[in-house]
Each structure stands twice: as C-alpha cells, then as structure tokens.
C-alpha cells in the first residue's frame, strides 16, 4: 500500500507541473489581450488620459 502513496504523489506532481505551466500561458495570454485592447484605443484619448 505504501507504493500507492508514491504512485499517487508522482502522478499528482506530473499534473500539477503541467497545469501550473498552462496557467502561466493563460495568464500571459490575458495580459497580452489587455495590451492589445490598450493599443486599439484611439491615441488622442490615451494622450488625454496621460495628461
């Protein structure tokens, strides 16, 4: 039965690593979407906002 504990740990660790990496991709993608939205805004409005 102790082998099952290690088996579970190895499989869980594998998927935790993969899901954590996928999460970083999703985060980077949403940050990029915000940047794209920012770029799409009219530059006059941006300038006004900055002033």
């Amino acid at each position: 039965m102790s082998g099952n504990r290690y088996l579970f740990a190895a499989y869980a660790a594998t998927w935790i690593i993969h899901v954590a990496y996928l999460w970083t991709i999703v985060r980077r993608y949403s940050r990029l979407q915000r940047e794209i939205e920012d770029l799409k805004k009219p530059s006059v409005r941006k300038a006004g906002f900055r002033l």
């Binding site: 102790s2 082998g3 290690y6 740990a9 190895a10 660790a13 594998t14 690593i17 993969h18 990496y21």
Partner: peptide, 20 residues
Amino acid sequence: EVGVVFCTVVLVTGPIWARP
C-alpha cells in the same frame, strides 16, 4: 520552454520512484 517542463517532471517523478 516546454522541454524544460517535461524535464522537470522527469526530475520530480524519478526521486519519488527511487525512494521506495
């Protein structure tokens, strides 16, 4: 980048197997 993720899995699962 993806290779490092898989290599990390190797380095984590190896010791978990080695311990018992």
